[in-house]
Structure formats: C-alpha cells, structure tokens
Amino acid sequence: MTKFLLSVHVLAAIIAIGPVTVAASMFPPAARRALAAPDDHRATGTVALLHRICQVYATFGVVVPVFGLATGSAMGVLGDTWLITSIVLTVLAAAVLMALVLPRQSTLAEGRGSRETTVQLAMFTGVFNLLWATVTVLMIVRPGSTTGA
C-alpha cells in the first residue's frame, strides 16, 4: 500500500504542482504584455488562460499533501523533522498561492491591475516556487533517512 500511496503522491505533485509553477511564472510577463496593449485579445486571452490553469491545478493540488500525509503515516515518518518541515513549507506555499498569487492574477486578468501589481505578483510567484523547490529537495534528500543521499 505504501508504494501505491507514494506513487499517487509523486504523480499528483508532478501533474498538479508542475503546471501551477510554470503557469504562475509565465503570468507576470504575459500580464505586462496585456497591460501594454489592452486591445490585444491574444495577450489578454493568454493572461486569462494562465490564470485558469493556476486555479484548476491549484485545486487539484490538494491531492498532493493528502497523499503525502497518508504516505508518511504508512511509512511511519510523520514525526521526522524533514517531513514536519516539508509540511510547514507546503502550508506556506499554499497560503502564498491562495492569498497572494491568485488574487493578484485575478485582478490582472480582470484588467484592473497595474505594472506594480505584476512586480508584486512576480515576487510572490518566486516565493511560491522557491517553497515548492525546497519541499521537493527535502522529499528527495530526506535528511537522516537511511535511504537519503
């Protein structure tokens, strides 16, 4: 059962979190192009599409920590420092996405933002991506693990 849970956890992370990080990273420059040319329907359409990708995959991304906790429980590592740190960073990443990234994307997708909004969004997106990269490294290295590098 542990192998199944771990497989679903890893696949969900790749399928859900990957698109969010890529689309979120592409959003600020696309929004700047749309702000520079508000009559360019292709630019505004790209912004709307990237925002929708982030929303949908962020919703699906809930599967990642659910199966991560189930896997950790099955492996008996829920009390390990690396996993607790990963859980805290995952909660922070989710909070950054929900409270700071998606609302600014919505503002820009609705045509109400400014260049300053895109700068803030780029910064928060970078923080979100850095948090997920750190969680990924912790999941691979697992400090103190007998199977870690």
Rank of each mutant, 00 (worst) to 15 (best):
A109R: 02
F124T: 10
G126V: 11
H51L: 11
G76H: 10
P143K: 04
R42M: 13
L121F: 08
A93N: 00
P38I: 06
R115D: 15
G76C: 11
A24R: 04
A13S: 15
A34S: 10
I17K: 02
D80S: 14
L78R: 15
L131V: 04
V135H: 01
M139Q: 08
G45V: 11
Q120N: 11
T136R: 03
L50Q: 07
A58S: 15
P103L: 06
A23P: 03
T90Q: 06
T134R: 03
H51V: 05
R142P: 09
I17G: 02
V127K: 07
P19A: 05
F60G: 02
V137G: 03
F128S: 06
A99E: 10
W132V: 02
G45I: 12
D39I: 06
T59Y: 07
S7H: 12
S73G: 09
I84D: 06
A24P: 02
A99G: 15
G61F: 00
F128P: 01
A58Y: 02
A70V: 04
T44D: 01
M26K: 15
F60T: 08
L102T: 04
I17M: 13
D40M: 05
L69H: 01
H41L: 14
V47H: 02
R115S: 10
T81E: 12
V88T: 07
F60I: 15
A16K: 01
R33I: 09
Y57V: 06
S145W: 12
V77A: 10
V8H: 05
Q105M: 15
E116W: 00
R104M: 08
S25F: 12
Y57F: 15
A34G: 02
M139T: 09
T147D: 11
P38S: 03
V62C: 08
M75E: 15
V63S: 10
T146F: 11
L49C: 08
G111K: 08
P19V: 07
F4A: 15
R32F: 05
K3N: 13
G126L: 11
I14S: 00
V137A: 10
W132R: 01
A36I: 04
G111S: 07
A93K: 04
T44K: 08
A34H: 00
V135P: 00
G45E: 05
S25M: 12
A37I: 00
L108A: 07
T71D: 01
V56T: 13
L131N: 01
T125Y: 07
M139W: 06
T147E: 09
F60M: 13
A109Q: 01
T117W: 04
F124C: 11
A12I: 07
I15N: 02
